[in-house]
Design a protein around this nucleic acid. Structure first.
Lengths: 190, 190
DNA sequence: GAACAAAAAGTCAGGCTTGACTGTTTGTTT
DNA sequence: AAACAAACAGTCAAGCCTGACTTTTTGTTC
């Protein structure tokens, strides 16, 4: 029942945004009575904060699953960045974005979302480093991985109102080529 | 008077977000009566759409001013990307972000914000190409400039809830070095 | 089997926001 | 100078959202 409420909350975040996600709508969508909802989550903030955590777990699981299915061979870097690009253009990202923006002007929400997102960010970083087989001990490598994640975040933001996947693919392909050159373990390119 | 209303709208977008920007607050902040406001902007959407246009002009002007003040010499690429990074971490970006996210789930708003943001994006692209002195006829260069803009957008998004400017600088510095290598006109690095 | 606690269901009032309506001032034209 | 139009000012009712309160059902323990 908790799960149903959280799922409904995430759905409504994607469809109607944070402001459009009223607690009444959530209880209706989840098929849960208003009283039951208020029993589990006394206030809207409680509900949404719990939804953040739920969402975080889903994001982590989806990322891990996507990494596991990566092809081993040749164009691995391209596959990794395309996977990241897809992930950060998914509805899951849209829901997270709603929370992110809402938290910017809501101190209570920020206190809950901030640390969580930081944790997810670190995990995504670890995963990406592992997936790319990058050597973080080399100077600059860590920054380029971070840049990759910030890039897909920016692309994801753009995709929420203009979904130009062809443009995204071209950019990520070029980025992957740059990464391949910069991350190559031998023959320092500098 | 229109200008005061629009300024107040932008301020409130930054401070309280889209949902927190009520028309009543705007009229109070602008020192304009409710009736006067409704005379100029019959609905909230009218007001906010006009604010988008106003904001767009300000963004354009700020970008142009920043470009004009760039040092000519040595580390020009670094200066350009740092300038972009600063710009996309400013309150102006926060206001635009609010509108962006609100437009995602509001068709009427999307119709107004979409084309506008596209125009601004193109202009930013042209400016960046000019500032970097990039040769867009070479394959991949265009994509790398786009990637740079999407990267700063992603960094700006991150900065709205966690303003880690040191991290941003490190990342942009590294990226600037990569850009210098990739955009160098002679000796194709591929 | 009865009693008690916890979960779920329904109702409702208070507060806020929006936009419509009516009155007042200012400026321009004849 | 008068009349008319446009901008401006204030008020208000309808609608929605939130969260508190009351009642009913379910499950567990004695």
């Amino acid at each position: 029942m908790r799960a149903r409420l959280l799922e409904a909350t995430v759905e409504l975040l994607v469809e109607r945004g944070f402001a459009g996600t009223s607690t009444t709508l959530v209880s209706e969508r989840a098929g849960v009575s208003r009283g039951a909802q208020l029993h589990h989550f006394p206030t809207k903030n409680d509900l949404v904060v719990a939804a953040v955590e739920h969402l975080t777990e889903r994001r982590g699981a989806e990322l891990a699953a996507a990494v596991a299915e990566l092809p081993a061979g040749g164009r691995r870097t391209r596959a990794v960045v395309e996977m990241l690009g897809d992930h950060f253009s998914s509805p899951v990202f849209a829901a997270a974005l709603e929370l992110w923006v809402a938290a910017r002007t809501d101190a209570e929400l920020l206190a809950a979302v901030g640390p969580l997102e930081q944790r997810v960010g670190r995990e995504a970083h670890r995963m990406t480093v592992a997936a790319l087989g990058a050597d973080e001990s080399r100077p600059g490598v860590r920054e380029l991985v971070q840049a990759t994640l910030d890039l897909v975040r920016g692309l994801g933001l753009a995709s929420t109102i203009t979904d130009d996947s062809a443009r995204r693919r071209r950019i990520l392909r070029e980025w992957a080529d740059v990464l391949d050159k910069e991350l190559a373990p031998c023959r320092s390119p500098r």
